[in-house]
Amino acid sequence: MQVVLAKPRGFCAGVNRAISIVHRALERFTPPVYVLHEIVHNTHVLEELRHRGAVFVEELEEIPTGAVTVFSAHGVSRAVAERARNLGLRTIDATCPLVSKVHRRMIRLYDQGYDVLVIGHKGHPEVEGTCGQVDGPVAVVSRASEIDTLQVRDPQRVGYVTQTTLSVDDTEELLKALRRRFPQISEPERTDICYATTNRQAAVRRLADQVDLILIVGSKNSSNSNRLREVAQLRQTPAYLIDDAGEIDPRWFAGVHSVGISAGASAPEHLVTGVIDWLRRQGPVTVMEMEGEEEHISFCVPELDGEPTGLQPGR
């Protein structure tokens, strides 16, 4: 069996930053440290942080007054931040800087009087946080078929932002439909789909042309991991999304001579190693990494010494 590893794969800079923030909070403050929603969408990452003293909650009201509380990498609405202030929580914002950039564009468009569209998956935490950056109504668009029925105040003043973890291919089709309906639509200078999502999808697209089957390591609720599986399937290559090697079905490999492996942006590399080890237990394998984009992006992680900016009651 030949095993080909996608490059790049796994953790992105925003995920690294968010996880590091929780680790530093656990080191600096007496556990438990509370995290609103999943810090990132990966069951193994969450379990490791729980073991160290992180408590994941879905509602701010579950958190004791004065407790250290981390907002997840997906970002939160202004209403959530305000409610945290009113509850007296000491908050740390682990929102990915690329998501924060989308928030700033959202606010800028709204302040300039545009009808703002959010392209993304309804109900996803990132989309809810983005919509909640402004006080007025915001339309979430998930499919090109929804565009013809959009109601806007002025077709000449429409703008959009995009969830950072969407499929590049699917989004391009949706944008073509938006441009047809609103020829003067305000677009970002560069796509809001983040570099990590774009790079990982491009790598899987190339990988799908080289192998018989692809395994994507990532959790079922991870948007970017699901998009990687879809990218492979669009190339007519069978692909499966697995949390870890324990979810592999040996029946998938009937007649398969080459396997590609990638991992979503919130999946740690040791899970990829576990998949390779599983394959080795089935028989001889050769492992190679494909050529791909080198990623050197990193984001600053706050020190959390004392009570710094960004960690204050009501901040």
Rank of each mutant, 00 (worst) to 15 (best):
V40P: 00
R24D: 06
V55A: 04
I63Q: 05
E61A: 14
F29A: 07
V76E: 11
H41M: 10
V57F: 07
N42S: 13
T69C: 09
P64A: 08
A73S: 14
G75A: 11
I63K: 00
F71I: 11
T65H: 14
A54H: 03
A25Q: 05
H74M: 06
T69F: 03
A67C: 08
P32Y: 11
H41E: 07
R52C: 00
A67N: 09
P64S: 12
V55F: 01
V70C: 05
H37K: 15
R28G: 01
S72I: 01
A25P: 02
L49E: 10
T30N: 13
L46M: 15
F29E: 03
E62M: 10
V45D: 01
T43G: 07
H41T: 10
V70G: 02
F56G: 06
G66W: 10
A67Y: 06
V22R: 04
L46P: 00
I21S: 07
H51S: 15
G66V: 14
I19R: 03
G66A: 10
I39A: 05
G53Q: 05
L26T: 02
E62S: 14
P32V: 08
N42M: 12
V33H: 04
T43E: 15
T65Y: 08
H51L: 13
V40H: 00
V45R: 00
L60A: 08
S20I: 00
V57G: 07
N42H: 04
G75T: 04
E62L: 05
I21N: 12
T43P: 08
R52Y: 01
E48G: 11
E48I: 01
F71K: 11
I39S: 03
E38L: 03
L49R: 02
V45K: 00
S72F: 02
V33Q: 04
R52P: 00
V76A: 01
H44E: 11
L60D: 14
E58A: 10
I39T: 03
V33L: 10
R52F: 04
V45L: 03
S20H: 13
A54R: 03
V45N: 01
I19S: 01
E38M: 00
L26F: 07
V68K: 08
F71P: 07
H23W: 05
V35K: 06
A67P: 03
V40N: 01
R50G: 06
E58W: 00
H41D: 09
E62P: 00
V45C: 04
E47L: 13
V55Q: 14
G66Y: 13
R52W: 06
H37S: 15
H51N: 13
P32K: 10
L49M: 13
T30A: 15
V68C: 08
H74N: 12
E38S: 12
E61D: 15
G53K: 13
P32E: 15
L49Q: 10
E59G: 05
E48H: 05
R50T: 11
V35I: 08
V76M: 09
V35H: 08
V55S: 11
P31S: 09
S20T: 15
V45F: 01
V33A: 09
E61L: 07
A67K: 05
L36H: 06
H74C: 06
